[in-house]
């Protein structure tokens, strides 16, 4: 790994980390959903500071070249994150359904009460 690439990677990781922390601080992102990304960043940072890790991991997984290992691991991480999102979307959609029904039924009760008061 060239020094240039290591610097570029480090800048990328740092700017993403700062961006994420800012979003969490401004309550535009929830900490619980950022943990996977955090793990990914720590992993990348470890590789930047110790490029030998890459070779070791590649051999450990039985993959021929480090670049293939990167693709493989990156793909796996992306799948995990998307899987988590699917789960979250399902929960959200169920919550929205319950809220929608509550709001609709409450609205009806309020309208009935109001019309009874007027009479």
């Amino acid at each position: 790994m060239t020094t240039r690439l290591r610097i570029i990677l480090l800048i990328l990781i740092l700017s993403m980390l700062i961006h994420m922390i800012l979003l969490i601080r401004n309550k535009k992102m929830q900490l619980q959903y950022t943990l996977t990304w955090l793990v990914l960043m720590i992993g990348l940072a470890a590789v930047v500071f110790n490029p030998n890790l890459l070779g070791q991991l590649t051999r450990f997984l039985g993959i021929y070249t480090p670049i293939n290992m990167i693709f493989f691991v990156g793909f796996c991480v992306a799948i995990v994150i998307i899987y988590q999102l699917t789960q979250t979307v399902s929960v959200l959609s169920e919550q929205i359904k319950v809220l929608t029904q509550k709001v609709a039924l409450l609205e009806k009760e309020v309208i009935v009460e109001n019309s009874e008061e007027q009479e």
Partner: peptide
């Protein structure tokens, strides 16, 4: 009753 969001037939 009017649903504020479309829930589909089941909802």
């Amino acid at each position: 009753v009017t649903l504020p969001v479309n829930l589909g037939i089941g909802g």
